[in-house]
Design a protein around this nucleic acid. Structure first.
Length: 481
RNA sequence: GGGGGCAUAGCUCAGUCGGUAGAGCAACGGUCUUUUAAACCGUGGGUCACAGGUUCGAAUCCUGUUGCCCCUACCA
């Protein structure tokens, strides 16, 4: 045991001997620290509680700062006012990191700091380990992830970042609820992975003796609910993907998905723009303010650009001139773009790679990217005019895909065909391809209205808004080895 | 998966050419009734990430391992 842990453990015994409970069960507060600071000078019977963050002791007088969820407040404790016994306890048995309750009256010190002067000090909880250094705090990134509580105590900007996350999620929920959406919960454990192209986590159910998969997306369950008569559903869905980790990917992330009956992707696109703008207005006060805080120009109409037009603009390749994978591959090479493993990719994947490599890095302000290749969108509706592309859009901001949406494929005959293709790829070793999903097809065959659905990476949205480049910085407890 | 970087006291960090471990804060013992990183006097605290190797001698050089970070490839 470390020295400091040992000393503090001994203090627990000393507290008990002095008749003080080291971990009492309650304390009645009248104000938070920040509320107390607003009280007029002289206000009496003010009680606050919090963690001791700083303490400056003199012989018969002691200044300290208590931190609660609202902030910090200075307290002043005079021996003649609180009594010998408790003053001795404060001096000998109380450490930075402990919890205290203070009852007293508001005053202003000689240097002008609003302070709660104690009539009574109540011990509220012993800390056996010290807090990080008071000036430099904690900055080791691994320590911040593993001991997020210390990061939260020491770094106010960390707390603000997570408070923003909470506020964004709350406002999204309110906006959807107010628009007639119903929030639902669908299975996290699924008997087969579906709804996205991704490698799942596999686990085993002992009693049933079957493999279960952690969901990679809630999509097919939410669409079953549309079959069941829901017309606007959404879910904040924790999803899991067993794939590589880097600053922009988590294996455990939050996706907001919604589905709306009778909408096409175009109405969905209009709704998305309104939804995000309303969200930002509620969170930041105005779009201009949001732009100021996030460094992104949210105001103004967001352009809609077809993927093929974007590729033509940035890569100077007219996709219509390259109708198959071989010719496109040659065309890409002729323009001097390097795409790794190009020989194995189909036409859709080549376009996708070209976009990611050449176009995406140039995108900054919010933009809708539309009309993706059909073979990259196995659950999306085929466009009526151009059978090669899907009725699909992505909201791209600063090169990040924030939301992905389409007119859903509701034709069970086409769906069966496309899942069969995916299953073929899977049998051929494509670990991310989809499986045949008879249960979902059964639901579809009972009839679906037109649907447009939508998914948004909440972690990415928050990272974008808080200017974090690593998604781990917007997740309270990121997965670490 | 490929490449690079980092790991020293509870925290933040020094540590020279390879010569046997340092500071500030925190802790412990004191002084101290208006402090703001309080001040002052005194004291203790280390598996230098781990395991090997080279060497008379390793925090330092070499190899391996572990963890974290960054770049790169892929999935949102």
């Amino acid at each position: 045991m470390e020295e400091q842990h040992e000393f503090r453990t001994e203090k627990v015994g000393a507290l008990k001997e002095a008749g003080v409970l080291p971990w009492p069960d309650r304390f009645e507060r009248t104000h938070s620290a920040s509320e107390a600071r607003e009280l007029p000078e002289g206000t009496d019977n003010v009680a606050i509680a919090g963690r001791l963050r700083f303490i400056r002791q003199m012989g018969k007088l002691c200044f300290a700062h208590l931190q609660d969820a609202s902030g910090m407040l200075q307290i002043m404790i005079r021996r003649e006012q609180v009594g010998e016994d408790i003053f001795k306890i404060i001096k000998k048995l109380v450490d930075v990191g402990d919890f205290l309750g203070i009852r007293g009256h508001m005053m202003v010190t000689r240097t002008g700091e609003t302070t709660l002067q104690a009539n009574e000090v109540v011990f509220l909880g012993k800390a056996l380990r010290p807090l990080p250094e008071k000036w430099h705090g904690i900055s080791d990134q691994e320590a911040c992830y593993r001991q997020r509580y210390l990061d939260l105590i020491m770094n106010p900007e960390t707390r603000e970042r997570f408070d923003l996350r909470t506020r964004v999620v709350r406002e999204l929920r309110r906006l959807l609820d107010d628009d007639g959406f119903t929030e639902v919960e669908t299975p996290v454990l699924m008997t087969r992975p579906s709804g996205a192209l991704a490698r799942p986590f596999v686990t085993h159910h002992n009693a049933m003796d079957i493999a279960l998969y952690l969901r990679i997306a809630p999509e097919t369950y939410l669409k079953r609910l549309i079959v069941g008569g829901y017309e606007r559903v959404y879910e904040f869905a924790r999803c899991f993907r067993n794939e590589g980790m880097d600053p922009s990917h988590l294996q455990d992330f939050t996706m907001l998905e919604y589905y709306v009956a009778y909408w096409s992707y175009e109405e969905n696109m209009a709704f998305t723009e309104t939804l995000v703008k309303d969200l930002l207005t509620r969170v930041y006060g105005s779009l201009d303010e949001a732009g100021e805080k996030t460094g992104i120009r949210w105001a103004g109409d967001w352009p809609k650009v077809a993927l093929s037009d974007l590729v033509e603009r940035d890569a100077e390749i007219r996709l219509a001139d390259f109708p198959d994978a071989d010719s496109l591959r040659a065309g890409i090479k002729a323009r001097g773009f390097e795409i790794e493993g190009a020989e194995k990719l189909g036409r859709g994947s080549l376009i996708d790679q070209l976009y990611k490599k050449v176009c995406r890095p140039k995108l900054t302000d919010p933009m809708f990217l539309t009309s993706h290749p059909i073979d990259l969108s196995p659950l999306a509706r085929r466009n009526d005019e151009n059978p090669d592309v899907a009725d699909r859009f992505q909201l791209v901001v600063r090169g990040w895909e924030i939301a992905n949406a389409y007119s859903e494929l509701v034709d069970p005959i086409d769906q069966r065909k496309r899942l069969a293709e995916q299953a073929g790829l899977k049998a051929g070793g494509d670990i991310e391809a989809m499986e045949m999903d008879e249960d979902y097809l059964l639901a579809m065959e009972h009839g679906m209205p037109p649907i447009s659905g939508w998914g948004m990476g909440i972690d990415r949205l928050i990272a974008l808004l808080t200017k974090q480049s690593n998604l781990r910085d917007v997740v309270l407890f990121p997965t670490l080895r």
